[in-house]
């Protein structure tokens, strides 16, 4: 199971990297989003994957699931959600103001 998820994370990272390297704003934002999802999966795998273990310690349960990675992912998702929302609004405003969503044309000039 860990191997499968590792491959999925790799695919998410590579698609994300590909999208970031393009010059459309929306694609870059989607790429960042995909990378963040890949990282969330990675945190989950880092805690170890177990089936049937409750996230509690007691004398009767032999195996238990570590609950901390899930708490971390929850926090990371919330933060990522806020940042992505901000980034989408910002890109919309930038598009409106500059009339382009091509990052190559947003380099800035020496005199303006």
């Amino acid at each position: 199971m860990e191997t499968l998820i590792a491959i999925v994370i790799g695919i998410l990272f590579s698609i994300g990297t590909y999208l970031i390297l393009s010059n459309q704003m929306l694609r870059i934002i989607l790429g960042l989003s995909l990378i963040s999802h890949g990282i969330n999966l990675m945190i989950m795998v880092m805690g170890g994957l177990k089936t049937g273990g409750p996230p509690l310690l007691s004398e009767t349960f032999q195996s238990f699931t570590d609950a901390i990675p899930q708490a971390l992912i929850l926090t990371a998702i919330v933060i990522n959600f806020a940042v992505t929302a901000f980034l989408l609004v910002l890109s919309y405003r930038t598009y409106k103001k500059h009339g382009t969503d091509d990052m190559n044309q947003l380099r800035g000039h020496e005199h303006e």
């Binding site: 960042l32 990378i35 963040s36 990675m42 940042v83 910002l90 930038t94 947003l106």
Partner: peptide
């Protein structure tokens, strides 16, 4: 707006690596 775009993108990416 133009500079914020770059600033946000680079910082989101570095925060992602922080999580890694």
């Amino acid at each position: 707006l133009r500079e914020t775009m770059k600033y946000v993108i680079i910082n989101v990416l570095s925060s992602a690596f922080f999580l890694v």
